[in-house]
Simulated assay, not measured.
Amino acid sequence: MAKLYFVRHGKTEWNLARKLQGKNGDSPLLEESYLETALLGERLKDISFAKIIVSPQKRAVLTAQTLIEEFNEVPPISYDAGLKEFGLGELEGVLIESAIERYPEQMHHLRNNPHEYDPEEFQGETYPELIKRSSQVVNEAVAQHPNQDLLFVAHGMTLVTLIQTLSGKPLEQIRKAGGIDNSSLSIIEVSDAGYELILWNDTAHLDSFK
Rank of each mutant, 00 (worst) to 15 (best):
S55R: 00
L95I: 06
F49K: 04
I47G: 03
S135I: 09
N147E: 14
Y79E: 00
E101I: 05
S27R: 10
A17L: 11
E189M: 06
P76Q: 02
D26H: 05
L110H: 10
K210D: 03
L44M: 11
N24M: 15
V137S: 04
E70F: 01
W200Q: 10
A50N: 03
L67V: 11
I163E: 11
E36H: 08
M157F: 15
I198A: 06
R18F: 11
L206T: 11
E69N: 01
P128M: 07
A60N: 02
A143S: 08
G25T: 06
I52W: 01
I77T: 14
I52Q: 06
E70N: 05
A38L: 10
N24E: 14
G87Q: 09
D118G: 15
G89V: 08
V94R: 10
Q148W: 11
K19Q: 09
Q65C: 04
L166R: 13
E101Y: 08
G22H: 13
S98T: 04
H155V: 02
Y5I: 01
T158Q: 14
F209H: 10
N147R: 14
L110Q: 02
I131H: 00
A17R: 12
D46P: 03
E189N: 09
Y34A: 06
Q21W: 13
A60M: 00
M157V: 13
E92K: 06
E70L: 09
R133Y: 02
G22Q: 00
H145D: 11
F6H: 03
K176H: 13
W14R: 12
L130P: 08
A154G: 10
G194D: 03
L110C: 14
K23A: 14
P104H: 08
I131E: 04
V137E: 03
A99G: 09
E196T: 15
T126W: 14
D80Q: 03
L83N: 01
V138H: 01
S33F: 00
V74D: 03
S191W: 00
L130Y: 04
E85R: 01
V160H: 02
K132W: 12
I131D: 07
L88M: 15
I53M: 00
K51I: 02
I131C: 09
A81N: 08
I96T: 12
E121D: 07
I47Q: 03
E73D: 06
